[in-house]
Amino acid sequence: MIFVTLGSQKFQFDRLLQAVDELQTDEEIFAQIGYSEYKPKHFKYKRFLDRDEFDKIMDSSNIVITHGGTGAIIGAVKKGKKVIAVPRLKKYGEHVDDHQIQLVNQFSELNLIYPCIDCDIQKALDTVKRTTYASYKSNTARIIRSLEEFINE
């Protein structure tokens, strides 16, 4: 299953939903569309999901298509999902600036996700199906140790 998650910020992401609607795939697709105005025609969706619904759908998916938000990306890669991340762009009224391009590129450089800057979802889907990505490794413990060492000095 493919899970499309667009977050809960008050920005539409109609461009991505339209691109997913045009996909040529036999896989089931479900989307959490947030504040988007576009209503998908070829897959099921819900505007918002509670935490349990979100986790259940995430767990049953093998591919996650998401906006370029850090939380959405990390949440999916932590669960071992293949991730297609599409940055929201200012020029389409999807965000206030283009910072998500930098975030998506950083995750891509770590070989954790597929960066879909141009919103060519068909190409992205075909690519992630045949690509192996790195596993997410948290550096939280290392950061905590560094802080403890600093405090103890």
Rank of each mutant, 00 (worst) to 15 (best):
M1W: 09
T5Y: 00
L6P: 01
G7K: 02
K10H: 03
K10F: 01
F11R: 03
F11S: 05
F13I: 03
D14W: 02
R15N: 08
L17P: 01
L17V: 00
A19M: 08
V20D: 01
D21W: 05
E22P: 00
Q24Y: 04
Q24C: 01
T25Q: 09
T25F: 12
T25V: 11
T25C: 11
D26G: 09
E27D: 12
E27N: 14
E28I: 07
I29N: 00
F30Y: 15
A31E: 09
I33M: 01
G34S: 03
Y35L: 00
S36W: 04
E37G: 15
Y38M: 11
K39R: 10
P40G: 06
F43Y: 14
K44D: 15
K44Q: 14
R47N: 12
R51K: 08
D52P: 00
E53A: 06
E53N: 06
K56H: 12
K56R: 14
I57C: 05
I57M: 07
M58W: 12
M58Q: 14
S60W: 03
N62H: 10
I63Q: 03
I63G: 03
V64A: 04
I65D: 02
I65C: 02
T66Q: 04
H67Q: 13
G68F: 03
G68S: 07
G69K: 01
G71M: 03
I73M: 03
I73N: 01
I73K: 00
I74L: 13
V77R: 10
V77P: 04
K79N: 14
K79L: 13
G80V: 08
K81G: 03
V83G: 00
I84N: 00
V86Q: 02
R88V: 01
R88K: 15
K90W: 13
K91M: 15
Y92D: 12
G93N: 06
E94V: 10
H95L: 10
D97T: 04
D98C: 08
D98Q: 14
H99Q: 12
I101Q: 06
Q102N: 08
L103S: 08
V104R: 02
V104M: 02
Q106K: 11
L110D: 11
P115F: 13
C116G: 01
C116Y: 02
I117K: 10
D118W: 12
C119H: 05
C119L: 13
I121K: 03
I121D: 05
I121V: 15
Q122W: 13
D126T: 13
T127V: 11
V128S: 01
Y133R: 08
A134T: 12
S135T: 11
K137N: 15
N139S: 07
T140Q: 08
R142W: 13
I143E: 14
I143V: 15
R145M: 14
S146Y: 12
S146H: 11
S146N: 08
L147P: 03
E148M: 11
E148D: 13
E149C: 04
F150M: 12
N152I: 09
E153K: 14
